[in-house]
Nucleic acid binder design. Structure first.
Length: 561
RNA sequence: UGGGGCGUGGCCAAGCUGGUAAGGCAAUGGACUUUGAAUCCAUGUAUCGCACGUUCGAGUCGUGCCGCCCCAGCCA
């Protein structure tokens, strides 16, 4: 289903693929792969890569693989592999036995091919130490020089390489190198290492191997074996492409096309594996799934839907220019979706007690309130109302600011879906802090409208004190205070920009009783506040909600100016 | 000072074989509103990095320059 017929391709990669389709370069096939190393958790940057790799394959009716590039036993673990599979499935892509592959399954084939190159005089065993090798490599501006071991005979190379595999030599004593050009202006071509000796237990192959292939040598072979047509990767691999091509050509095997695009950067966030690891290890967040983390697990716990993340990835586009996407776009994507899907509920984050003095002591009324103002099909719910209710502290101002149209002494506002109330008294404690409000209600305004048709400008949310559920609401903000977390004074790193208020816990929040029984992952719009989701920390005794994203707040914005 | 890339409004980003600048986000104004939300209208700003050149005409071609990013792991 080539749905792009007749329309211009959306990006340069699709353009290249359409060109290949037109010329029949790969026999009309489109086959991509997402090749993570199982040594960490996936984040939003990976989501972009996945959406590109898999989204493009889907667009052209092609196939896509998940391939674990597990060529370094020193840093890989099964746990990571499983989490990666889970995260990709969560995003909505189809990965399973039929399209999950492991580079480690190709080790034998790779070894055979290495022997082929040795026989062709295109690879040799080098005994230089790592330090010597660095010296021989030259610099960016000076050419390197040939290793004294470069011209060993094919027989000797074959013998040595075989013994490397057999585990006869210690780590760092020898490597297998491609014989290309030590004077190449592209440093990657200065006789790159193909295999290094590692006496490590591999999480899948165990102790079978003592040598492991390097990325440059392995990657093209993996793509070739799987029949990948377009090997999409980030800009960092641009100057590795000549090497990718060189190995495949030297072997004369099926040759996919590597194409590079810019990786994702987002304002107020850091995406490097190393930095993310520090946030976790140094305890700045609770773990990889902390709702402030840009990991897919973090976003999930935060309440982001996979659809919103895919939508985000679609909107940011694909190009080769390094760029930083405004996090506001991600927030827009989740708001747009949750506005559609999330049932509304009332929650008072910072309660202020309101006593409705003319409301009967023991009376309780139930109001039928819509779950979605624009979607009657989402139904209604019964919300109890009684003499004492909580409203948001910020919805009352003793001395109202200009244009403030919430509650204030002598002012009338609407309690959403219930009654109009007028503030008649402000009760303070010895310290002068407001402890409660006395209001009167207009029985005629039942349901939130009045027969005389008078208008109230303000509508605020509320919750019946006697019926409210105690809850903890976790309010999140960006982890960093600067758009560019890396923008720090000399000698400091991004930790200097950590936002001390990235998590603020509203421990005394009250929510309407209808939320009892909510399950982790459930999403709601807490009216006038934002979108929230139930956290896994929720127990029978205490509900816990996470702020996914606040509602846009033009009042707050106006106040700031 | 080697090589590889990139440079279009505040942020992303289209712009095919040159014909006179899409779209989204953000921002702003207004309408509507029992969420100051949503929705709906409206709005702006682009020396298309700079300079020459080719051309009737260049973001699109050429030359030169400037700026930014990446590469010297037996990591991926």
């Amino acid at each position: 289903m080539t749905e792009n017929e007749g329309t211009a391709p959306r990006d340069f990669i699709r353009a290249a693929i359409e060109e290949d389709l037109k010329t029949g370069r790969f026999g009309g096939r489109v086959h991509t792969r997402f090749p993570p190393e199982p040594n960490g958790y996936l984040h939003i940057g990976h989501a972009k890569a996945i959406c590109i790799d898999y989204g493009i394959a889907e667009d052209y009716g092609g196939k896509y693989n998940l391939r674990f590039d597990d060529t370094n036993p020193a840093k890989e673990e099964v746990e990571y592999a499983q989490s990666i599979i889970d995260d990709i499935r969560w995003l909505g892509f189809d990965v399973g036995e039929h399209n999950i592959f492991y580079a480690s399954d190709y080790f034998e084939q790779m070894y055979q091919w290495a022997e082929v190159l040795i026989k062709k005089g295109l690879a040799y065993v080098d005994d230089l130490s790592p330090d010597e090798m660095r010296e021989y490599r030259g610099t960016l501006t000076e050419p390197g020089k040939n290793s004294p071991y470069r011209d060993r005979s094919v027989e000797e190379n074959l013998d040595l390489f075989g013994r490397m595999r057999a585990g006869e030599f210690p780590e760092e004593s020898r490597v297998l190198r491609a014989k290309i050009d030590m004077a190449s202006p592209n440093i990657n071509l200065r006789d790159p290492v193909m295999y290094r000796i590692l006496h490590r237990e591999h999480y899948r192959t165990g102790d079978k191997w003592h040598i492991y292939p390097m990325y440059d040598w392995a990657h093209g072979l993996e793509d070739s074996i799987e029949g990948v047509t377009h090997s999409l990767c980030d800009l960092g691999y641009e100057d590795h492409r000549p090497l990718y091509d060189w190995f495949l050509d030297a072997l004369g095997i099926y040759h996919p096309q590597q194409l590079e695009f810019a990786r994702l950067n987002v304002t107020y966030t850091v995406l490097s594996k190393r930095f993310l690891l520090r946030l976790v290890n140094e305890g700045h967040v609770r773990g990889w799934d902390d709702p402030r983390m840009p990991t897919l697990r973090g976003l999930k716990r935060r309440g982001y839907t996979p659809e919103s993340i895919v939508d985000f990835c679609d909107r940011i586009g694909i190009a080769k220019a390094n760029s930083v996407v405004d996090i506001a776009l991600l927030e827009h994507c989740i708001r747009e979706e949750l506005n559609e899907r999330a049932p509304r509920a009332m929650a008072v984050l910072e309660p202020l007690k309101v006593i409705i003095t003319n409301y009967p002591e023991d009376q309780v009324e139930y109001f039928d309130i819509p779950n979605h103002p624009q979607k009657p099909e989402m139904g209604t719910r019964q919300v109890p109302f009684s003499r004492v209710v909580y409203i948001e502290q910020e919805d009352f101002m003793e001395k109202p600011a200009p244009k403030y149209f919430r509650l204030a002494p002598g002012r009338e506002v609407r309690l959403a879906g219930a009654y109009y109330i007028t503030c008649v008294d402000v009760v303070k404690d010895a310290a002068g802090d407001i402890v409660e409000l006395h209001c009167t209600y207009d029985p005629e305004s039942r349901g939130g409208a009045t027969p005389d048709g008078r208008k109230v400008k303000g509508t605020i949310h509320w919750v019946s004190a006697a019926h409210a559920l105690d809850t903890e609401v976790r309010m999140y903000d960006y982890l960093f205070t600067k758009e560019d977390p890396g923008d720090v004074p000399e000698g400091q790193d991004f930790m200097a920009n950590l936002n001390p208020e990235s998590l603020v816990i509203m421990a005394g929040a009250k929510v309407e009783p209808g939320l009892a029984g909510t399950k982790p992952g459930d999403r709601y719009q807490f009216m006038r506040k934002g979108y929230f989701c139930t956290d896994p920390d929720t127990t029978e005794e205490k509900l816990v909600f996470n702020l996914t994203v606040s509602l846009r707040d033009s009042w707050a914005k106006a106040q700031q100016q």
